[in-house]
Design a protein around this nucleic acid. Structure first.
Lengths: 334, 334
DNA sequence: TTGAAAGCGCTAACAG
DNA sequence: CTGTTAGCGCTTTCAA
């Protein structure tokens, strides 16, 4: 076993040892034309021998374009993780590298973005940012900026997001198609996407000439459970189906409903939103609406890169979601 | 609104405009002694005015130590997310910066590590790596390496992990303390940690002079459900409690048991492992064993940094887990 | 094909 | 307190 060298080998070391110039080594490592096959092999062999790896920092510094795509994401946010996986693939597919910057309770969105900017990322992709349109515009003034999964209009920023109106329609119309007539919506209050989902629900109900009934909800299991309790103790005519803002809330809702002795889907059908791990669990096995993570990511990467190519900004791209039918929906009991 | 400049301002621009030397600007931005309060203010003001931000790449390149801590993690891995949050805090607390490198289906562990190495991170922290001890040793030969949440012995690498033997004992003894005597363990096969958990279970049972009964399981809900079905259809005397390898498997187990008409915890107590989101859901509300993510992360960061200070490698640090009692365990029915 | 020279934007070590 | 002088390890001309 080799003893660790005091200094990591540099391109010069490789060049010297291989008996060529440093520029040549650079060419070989970037797979550019300008070196004979023989030379290439020799250079690579020498590099491997002395354990040389190109220094990323130096490379970035000397290039005009860094070919770095920066992405901020919520650490622990399930959906962001899905997006990141695809983003890695999309970036690589376009010859870019992805640099991550996580947002945690102790690390603000702004800090996360600043890190990416000081690395001189060519463009930044922000997953579900919560900052103001103004702050976003400030960032976009210096760096091509693409926002994913949030509806905003800010000068200079591109937006890619799921068509939540369509998603809510999909969910609601699924219930209507099954024959339900009294369908309620447990909403997400002021959460991002909540307004769109209410709208989609309303459109579907009105389209079928049915009464709209929106119950205040939230994003958590507790919120869903609360809504269920209120709904069940309500004197009015009981609904036969509910479309809930997201999976977490739907899970709480589901649990409370079953707890109260009602059978799902026999007495009440339930649809969630997000297709999260929870929705897929054997217990919930929830009918839900899935966002198209691969397409969202691919589109975001493409938009960002297009901007680098001089494309004008301001795109607002809507991606269609799809319905995932599981076991919490069925025809209403006669 | 200002038009975006063609070229980002550099330290020289700030220096020129503030009428000072570049070195001074550098001092101001690094908060080093050697500049008057007045000068500091003026420099900062000018910098803000022309929109200057220090260039990270250049900074890294010129420093001997990069003060970068690299971390690889499984994108979408819930527990890794917990660790990352804490790692960000721990790194910042020690004056280091954290660089993330994600592992996805399309991006191997090795690629992820290589990226960190080519950024010249001072040290790398690998969350639950699956590579061989040999591969780990190869990395550690060049860069201080700390492995988190996996039991390995590789020359040059430090390891921080949860004491799974203790965790399994905790879980089993909780059941014994409640008065259970027929306690089975649904194991995790060859998964990391499975051997330790079997061992902890065995120790606890033998310590109480009880019969050991280990049922082959796995890591998924399906595996847990399968194990439950096998257990229930088994002719032998039914157990009153089960300690399951992890929360996912426990959830599947739980569901299958209830499906079969048995009441949890009245007829059968269940304990999981991990304290995942699933365990906390209103539905499962699973008694489980929680790893100490903050301490794991803090320890990993400290070990890594200690190594940079010349500390010898090879530490094997065990962190104590803790029991989280929820609603799936109770005294056995009389 | 190859080599020499000039940066990229910063930090570091000294001399004023 | 301030300025000068070297690099850090690579890419990028431009000539040979």
């Amino acid at each position: 076993m080799e003893t660790p060298p005091t200094r990591r080998p540099t391109m010069d070391d490789v060049a010297a040892r291989a008996g060529v110039s440093r520029a040549l080594v650079s060419i070989v490592f970037r797979d550019l034309p300008g070196a004979s096959g023989q030379t290439r092999e020799r250079v690579r062999a020498v590099a491997a021998e002395i354990g040389y790896r190109p220094d990323h920092r130096a490379r970035l510094l000397s290039r005009k374009r860094t070919h770095l795509l920066g992405a901020t994401f919520g650490v622990g946010h399930e959906f962001h993780s899905d997006l990141l996986s695809e983003l890695y693939a999309a970036a690589a597919g376009h010859g870019y590298e992805l640099v991550l910057s996580g947002i945690t309770p102790g690390r603000t969105e702004s800090q996360a973005v600043q890190e990416l900017l000081s690395l001189r990322c060519d463009a930044v992709i922000l997953l579900g940012p919560t900052m103001t349109a103004h702050e976003l515009a400030d960032i976009a003034a210096f760096t091509p900026t693409t926002v994913v999964a949030r509806a905003v209009r800010a000068t200079g920023v591109d937006v890619v997001r799921t068509d939540d109106v369509a998603g809510a329609r999909l969910a609601t119309e699924h219930l209507l198609d099954l024959g339900h007539r009294r369908v309620v919506h447990i909403d997400g209050g002021r959460a991002p996407g909540a307004a769109e989902r209410r709208r989609g629900y309303r459109l579907a109900m009105r389209g079928a000439d049915l009464d709209v009934s929106i119950i205040p909800g939230g994003l958590t299991e507790d919120a869903g459970a609360d809504a269920a309790r209120r709904l069940l103790s309500d004197g009015s005519e009981a609904p036969t189906a509910a479309f809930v803002f997201n999976d977490a809330s739907a899970a709480g809702f589901l649990h409370a409903v079953r707890r109260a002795g009602h059978s799902v889907p026999r007495e009440l059908s339930v649809v969630g939103y997000d297709d999260s791990r929870l929705a897929r669990s054997v217990w919930a096995d929830l009918t839900t609406v899935a966002q198209n993570a691969p397409l969202l990511s691919e589109s975001a990467a493409e938009l960002a890169i297009a901007r680098l190519g001089g494309e004008p900004s301001g795109a607002q791209m809507l991606i269609a979601p799809r319905l995932v039918v599981r076991s919490t929906t069925s025809q209403p009991r006669l």
